[in-house]
């Protein structure tokens, strides 16, 4: 992120021409400007994420419009309860993430750490539930494309639903894992005492990312689990 140390190396180097903090890079006028610029950059990245998922959503809508019976029949293989639990888990994790950001912004380091740990744990919970869902489908042969080998009765075209299911939840799951990695890094940095009201940009940006991943799940849940 934008916390590269100054060439002079000294956060409190009062002999330096400008007295500025370690996190402030030379090409920014102020910490506030640097923060705003980082945020705008993060939003631009989130836009590319939205466009990435929009292609998948469009593919889903097209296939669903063409094979409505297959999609309705196929979605009965999904466990609605697990999907609902995962939705709630992710919503709560978004709440704890935003609380972590606020705690960091208010220099409440202990609270920041606690909220980050809870967020990380909820991300892990989501992935564990996802793992059991995946295992169940792999066991039944409810797989994408020509891997589909479900033995029971089904409507032609169900494999299309599972193609979309695995691609969409798979890419979403990779985003959760990536977010968990970044949150683990934030925990490490927070333990070191690097974040305070003066500088908490990485926490803020990770929060934005985490909320976007939650936002995508808000659409995935009804589309995949509640088709009828």
């Amino acid at each position: 992120m934008s916390d590269i140390a100054m060439p002079s190396g000294g956060a409190h180097d009062h002999g330096h021409a400008h007295d500025h903090p370690k996190f402030l890079q030379h090409h920014f006028h102020s910490a506030k400007q640097q923060f705003e610029a980082s945020k705008l950059g993060m939003w631009l990245f989130l836009v590319t994420e939205i466009l990435l998922f929009s292609g998948l959503f469009l593919a889903y809508f097209m296939l669903q419009a063409r094979h409505p019976e297959a999609f309705i029949s196929a979605h009965h293989h999904l466990d609605r309860t697990m999907g609902l639990v995962n939705t709630v888990v992710l919503l709560i994790s978004s709440f704890t993430m935003v609380m972590a950001v606020q705690s960091a912004a208010l220099s409440r380091t202990k609270a920041t750490l606690a909220y980050l740990y809870v967020t990380l744990g909820l991300g892990g919970t989501f992935m564990v539930i996802k793992y059991f869902e995946y295992m169940h489908k792999i066991h039944d042969g409810l797989l994408p494309g020509n891997l589909y080998s479900y033995a029971g009765a089904s409507v032609p075209g169900e494999y299309l639903f599972f193609s979309m299911y695995f691609v969409m939840t798979g890419i979403h799951g990779i985003h959760i894992l990536a977010g968990m990695g970044v949150i683990a890094y934030l925990i490490y940095r927070t333990h070191k005492g690097d974040y305070s009201s003066a500088y908490y940009t990485p926490v803020d940006l990770t929060g934005l990312y985490w909320h976007l991943v939650d936002l995508i799940w808000i659409y995935l849940f009804p589309l995949l689990y509640l088709v009828s």
Binding site: A11, H12, D19, H20, P21, L24, H29, S30, A31, K32, F35, Q102, A105, L106, S107, R108, S196, S197, A198
Partner: peptide
């Protein structure tokens, strides 16, 4: 917003960031 001692010492650039 919270101004802790070490933050206040950090920077003359530290502007009001209005965190409520």
């Amino acid at each position: 917003m919270s101004h802790q001692e070490h933050n206040a010492a950090l920077s003359s650039h530290h502007e009001e960031n209005h965190v409520h």
